[in-house]
Design a protein around this nucleic acid. Structure first.
Length: 293
DNA sequence: CACTTGACCTGTCCGC
DNA sequence: TGCGGACAGGTCAAGT
């Protein structure tokens, strides 16, 4: 589920709620969701206070006062929802427009008890995970070593974007956009939306795309990510922010989950096809497949 | 090297 | 109402 805009939305919420507060206890009922050694957990998690909440690609980094960091990947259906003790100003009770009700519920995998409330890691499909690692080791883990640049950082210029794509010149563009080692944080929704906006067929080879279209793709990719963050991300089924509330970006999506509906540009029926093993949404008229040789 | 498939899991939806 | 299959926002590993 969560791609860069959703994880960033969660990060911003947690950043308002957690820093300065202390973790008092933890429980987990699914080992793969929280595979840490209990001794390490007792020593470096319980009693730790939160310094800051960061993000790299689709991974959340909750940095603790013990020089350990809680690294979390939400994968497809993960949620991190904070509920304050009653009377506190955020997260108390649950708003009616929330997607999640009373917590914990049957998809709660990890519960972090804190001095001012409780942080629930819910994950219906159990693909996500939380790992407690020494903060100094986080930059050295495999994921951090190979993940590509952050697209919303100022250093991510058009030249960088193009150079990253051309690390895989013979691959189809959608697969390259989804490759976290090429660019960080893009997933199925924003790959489809940015390719539509740039009028590029998802099965085009990188080296067959014109410079002009690559420039448009660069601009549209950043625009789509920024708009989604502004709208609190995309809620298709499970995604919620740190308060348990939905994001509204999908009401602005032009192709994603719009198969069978008319293209907003030309009226042609939006198709759903399979590209790079993923459901892929295109306008067959706006996005033409042009083969090179 | 690039692409496909299967795995990891649970839940929902759709057709029969 | 039940049952089987396909599919779901993400990554891995293994096979062609």
């Amino acid at each position: 589920m969560p791609e860069l805009p959703e994880v960033e939305t969660v990060r911003r919420g947690l950043s308002d709620m957690l820093p300065g507060h202390t973790i008092t206890d933890v429980s987990s009922d699914w080992t793969k969701s929280f595979p840490n050694d209990i001794g390490v957990v007792r020593k470096y998690l319980i009693g730790a206070s939160v310094l800051q909440v960061n993000r790299r690609a689709k991974v959340l980094l909750i940095e603790l006062s013990t020089n350990y960091t809680l690294v979390t990947h939400l994968k497809m259906t993960g949620q991190l929802v904070f509920r304050g003790k009653s009377g506190e100003h955020f997260g108390a009770g649950h708003p009616t427009h929330s997607l999640v009700g009373d917590l914990p519920d049957k998809s709660t995998r990890v519960t972090l008890f804190m001095d001012h409330g409780t942080l629930f890691f819910n994950d219906q499909r159990k693909f996500g995970w939380m790992k407690l690692l020494p903060t100094a080791e986080v930059p050295n883990i495999d994921f951090m070593q190979k993940v590509g640049p952050e697209p919303l950082e100022p250093a991510f210029t058009y030249a960088v974007f193009k150079a990253r794509l051309f690390t895989r010149p013979n691959s189809i563009i959608k697969a390259v956009l989804l490759d976290q080692a090429v660019i960080a944080g893009i997933g199925n929704i924003y790959a489809d939306e940015s390719l539509f906006a740039a009028k590029i067929h998802p099965e085009m080879r990188v080296s067959d795309i014109s410079e002009l279209k690559l420039k448009v793709l660069y601009r549209e990719l950043l625009a789509v990510l920024l708009l989604s963050i502004e709208k609190g991300g995309s809620t298709d089924k499970n995604y919620v922010n740190a308060e348990g509330k939905k994001g509204s970006y999908l009401t602005f999506a032009k192709v994603f989950r719009r198969e069978g509906k008319p293209c907003v540009v030309c009226g042609t029926t939006i198709l759903k096809i399979r590209v790079a093993g993923r459901g892929t949404h295109i306008c067959p008229k706006c996005q033409r497949l042009i083969k090179g040789k």
